[in-house]
Design a binder for these strands. Structure first.
Lengths: 296, 296
DNA sequence: ACCCTACTGAATAAATCTTTTCACAACGGC
DNA sequence: GCCGTTGTGAAAAGATTTATTCAGTAGGGT
């Protein structure tokens, strides 16, 4: 469908938004700055004069002028008119309220049903988090005197993996326990009282994980559990439990809210000890740069 | 606060529409002509230059200038700004609804700042998805005549992993290309024209992935790219590209919107061929049950 | 018919916006 | 490290817009 010439100038009838998307790769840094500002407040952020619009995106007027030409408009006034025509069409259309979304995604489209469900899940999850518990868990996770173990179930293994990659950038002494439960006894052997086990367990709950949590708890390990709204049996031995709403119109469960909680935990741990984290990031960058040269 | 002039010009905070209604009796014939044109196409008919706006209402510019002063604005530019602010408020309506997610969590708490950012990312991502492209990509991903390869970068490997686990439940002939690029040539060897490569690449973009995408594309492989708002260089060879907004108040990028897009794709592929998928889920359950007995 | 008042838009001057040019800065390749 | 390329914004020239003035016109009252 999409030909190469389209990607240069965009279809004549395309919306400004579409044109920006089509051209995004070809935009320079400042131009993207403006593009982002416009997309973030579309179309209002493009309906003032070029001077004002440029100033509020914190770029110069020539940058805006150049960009609209890249998008295929002869000049700023033409671009302005295009936005206005779009606005006119949108407002006179039936779905005035959700103009921003509805303009491109029909309400009945799977995308929209899905995002609505996810929004509800996030809302539910958030309103069921006890900030005190959250802050406590963050303290524990940020404490490098404790070794941190990560483990997930069949589906949530990917989340544990994600957690591992990010926590690795933030702190040391982390272990991702592979999913194969056959190897778990070896890890248990090394766990000490005070160590932390961050565990993901959503339905269908796995007996293996429960057994692991029990054994760890017996050894004085601090178990933090991220589970679903119905709560894994692991909750009985966990010191901190977080519930994530996961239902979506589908045969399986969504892990968006789970991931949201995870990312927030990571961000909080990172903030907890920012100077050290920052130093780690810098060193990490250096090493990646070195590795890149390596590969060449 | 309320002066006698308010009764003439309307309350300071009133919308332009309200001000026009309030002043309508005091307007002259030509001014009403313009007022009607504006109300009929609100607010677009007031967002161009005074010259254009006057011409399309078939009145003179002084008429418009006089009228906006009657409404209480110092001049046309101020009137223009007022309309723009209204538009902004309308369009950002759904965003403000997100503020209610806050529930009990204090507004300044990291959780809240984070969730707000994520909400914006999801919204941005959604409004930048072309449903046609989305539907096309789903068709391709659901086609089991094509072999499906999955690959991610350093961070997004976990997403590829997640995609693999779920796609496995939905369809056959899938391969998760491990992150170690040393093994990629073997996979490339087996790729045929028409096969699909679903690739995750968010900044910092990896040269390896770009090279892989190029080689695959040369062999006629259909590359589907999930990237960030700044677009990975892979986009140039990808048949379908999806942009996910990933910025959060943190040193790293959020992959919530990425994951949302992924889950939606999986759900769509699943719906595409529901009877078969359902049968697979049932058999999968049986096998898990059998495996459970196994382990005891 | 006459005047008076209020309204309207052509014309204009001032202000603002738009575009282009150009010099400098940042980056990547050699 | 150097050089060519590319990106960026200050500045100025050119175009447009805005506000005002003012002459002409329409309508209502006497």
């Amino acid at each position: 469908m999409s030909t190469s010439s389209d990607s240069k100038t965009g279809k004549p009838g395309a919306t400004v938004r579409e044109k920006i998307r089509a051209q995004y790769a070809a935009l320079t840094q400042s131009e993207r700055k403006f593009a982002n500002a416009l997309l973030a407040n579309y179309p209002a952020a493009g309906l003032a004069s070029i001077t004002i619009v440029a100033a509020s995106a914190d770029v110069s007027t020539p940058t805006v002028a150049r960009m609209v030409q890249k998008l295929g408009y002869k000049g700023y006034p033409q671009f302005h008119r295009a936005l206005l025509r779009e606005l006119e069409a949108t407002v006179s259309g039936p779905t005035q309220r959700r103009a921003n979304w509805a303009s491109e995604v029909p309400a009945t489209h799977l995308l929209n049903r899905f995002v609505t469900a996810i929004g509800q899940n996030i809302e539910q999850t958030l309103s069921n988090i006890d900030t005190t518990q959250f802050d406590e868990a963050v303290q524990v996770l940020a404490d490098t005197d404790r070794r941190l173990y990560l483990v997930g179930g069949r589906i949530t293994r990917a989340l544990a993996e994600y957690a591992f990659t990010h926590f690795q950038a933030v702190r040391q002494r982390i272990t991702h326990m592979t999913s194969s439960s056959a190897t778990w006894p070896h890890y248990l052997l090394d766990m000490e009282a005070g160590d932390v086990l961050l565990m993901f367990d959503v339905r269908r709950y796995e007996t293996n994980l429960q057994r692991l949590a029990e054994l760890a708890a017996e050894r004085g390990v601090h178990v933090i559990l991220i589970t679903d709204q119905w709560a894994s049996p692991v909750a009985t031995v966990a010191k901190h439990t977080f519930h994530c709403w996961v239902e979506i119109p589908s045969a399986w469960d969504s892990n968006i809210s789970t991931m949201m909680l995870l990312e927030t935990l990571i961000a909080a741990v990172q903030e907890e000890n920012w100077p050290e984290t920052r130093a780690r990031y810098e060193r990490l960058d250096e090493i990646f740069d070195a590795a890149r040269l390596f590969g060449k």
